[in-house]
C-alpha cells in the first residue's frame, strides 16, 4: 500500500512540476495523435458523409466492411504496418519504421474506420431528416452537401474526437511500429508500459495522470458538444 501512495504522490509531483521528460513524452503523444486524427478525419469524414448520401451498388457491403475494420485489433494493425515498412517490406526503402510517421500511419488505420462510421451514422440520420425538404427546395447537390456538413458539424466533430480518444490511449500498434525509443517515438502509453515493467510506479502514474486527463478532457468536450447540439447553440 505504501508503495502506491508514494507513487501517487510523486507521480502527482512530476505533473505539477512539469517534469521535462514527462512534458516531452506528452508532446510527442499529442503530436502523433493530433496529426493522425487530422489525417484520418480528412479521409473518413467526407467518406462517411458520402456513404450516407449516395446510393450505389454494394453500398451495404462497404458499410459492413467499414464496421468490420472498426473491430480490427490494433496490435494486428501494428503488425501489418510493421511488415509493410520493415526493411524487406514493400515500403521498406522509405525507412519509416520506428519513426513517428509510422506511428501516425498505424493510428490513422485504426481510427479512420471509427470516425467514418460515426460520421456515416450521423449524416445518414440528418439526411433522412432533411431529404424531402432539400429536394422540395430544389437545393443543388453542392448546396445539399454544404447544408448537411454545416448542420452536422457537431456530430462530425464528435466523430473526430472519438477517433482522438481511441488513438491517444492505444498502445499495441505504436509499440510495434514505433519501438518506444527514448526521445524519438516514446509516447504516454508506451512509456507507461515501460515504466511499469521497470517498477518505476511514480513515473508510470505521473504519465497515467496526464493520459487520464487527456481522455477525460476529450470526453467532456464530446459531452459538451452533444449538449450544445440538443440546445441548438452555435
Amino acid at each position: 500500500m505504501g508503495d502506491i501512495w508514494e507513487g501517487l504522490a510523486s507521480g502527482f509531483w512530476l505533473v505539477v512540476t512539469l517534469d521535462p521528460d514527462l512534458v516531452a513524452i506528452t508532446l510527442m503523444s499529442l503530436r502523433v495523435t493530433v496529426t493522425a486524427t487530422l489525417i484520418a478525419s480528412c479521409i473518413a469524414l467526407p467518406f462517411g458523409a458520402w456513404l450516407a448520401i449516395r446510393r450505389f451498388r454494394h453500398r451495404r457491403l462497404v458499410i459492413a466492411v467499414l464496421n468490420a475494420l472498426m473491430g480490427l485489433p490494433p496490435v494486428v494493425v501494428g503488425l501489418i504496418v510493421y511488415l509493410l515498412f520493415s526493411r524487406s517490406g514493400p515500403f521498406g526503402v522509405l525507412g519509416l519504421l520506428f519513426t513517428p510517421t509510422a506511428m501516425i500511419i498505424a493510428q490513422v488505420i485504426i481510427i479512420a474506420p471509427l470516425i467514418a462510421s460515426i460520421a456515416h451514422q450521423a449524416m445518414r440520420d440528418l439526411w433522412a431528416d432533411y431529404h424531402d425538404l432539400l429536394i422540395s427546395m430544389s437545393a443543388s447537390k453542392w448546396q445539399r452537401v454544404k447544408t448537411l456538413i454545416w448542420d452536422g458539424r457537431r456530430a462530425l466533430l464528435t466523430a473526430a474526437l472519438a477517433g482522438f480518444g481511441r488513438a491517444i490511449g492505444e498502445v499495441g500498434a505504436i509499440m510495434i511500429v514505433g519501438g518506444n525509443i527514448d526521445n524519438a517515438t516514446r509516447v504516454l502509453t508506451t512509456a507507461i508500459a515501460l515504466e511499469t515493467g521497470k517498477g518505476d510506479f511514480a513515473r508510470a502514474l505521473g504519465l497515467g495522470f496526464v493520459l487520464i486527463g487527456l481522455a477525460v478532457t476529450v470526453n467532456i468536450v464530446i459531452h459538451t458538444v452533444g449538449r450544445t447540439e440538443r440546445e441548438g447553440k452555435w
Binding site: L126, D129, Y130, D132, L133, S136, S138, T147, D151, E229, G232
Partner: peptide, 21 residues
C-alpha cells in the same frame, strides 16, 4: 420542370426543421 420546382412550396405534415435558428 427545373424552373417549376423553384416556384412551388411544400409544407409537410410533420414539419421538417433545419437544425438552425
Amino acid at each position: 420542370l427545373d424552373q417549376a420546382r423553384a416556384r412551388q412550396g411544400f409544407v409537410f405534415q410533420s414539419p421538417i426543421m433545419l437544425r438552425r435558428s
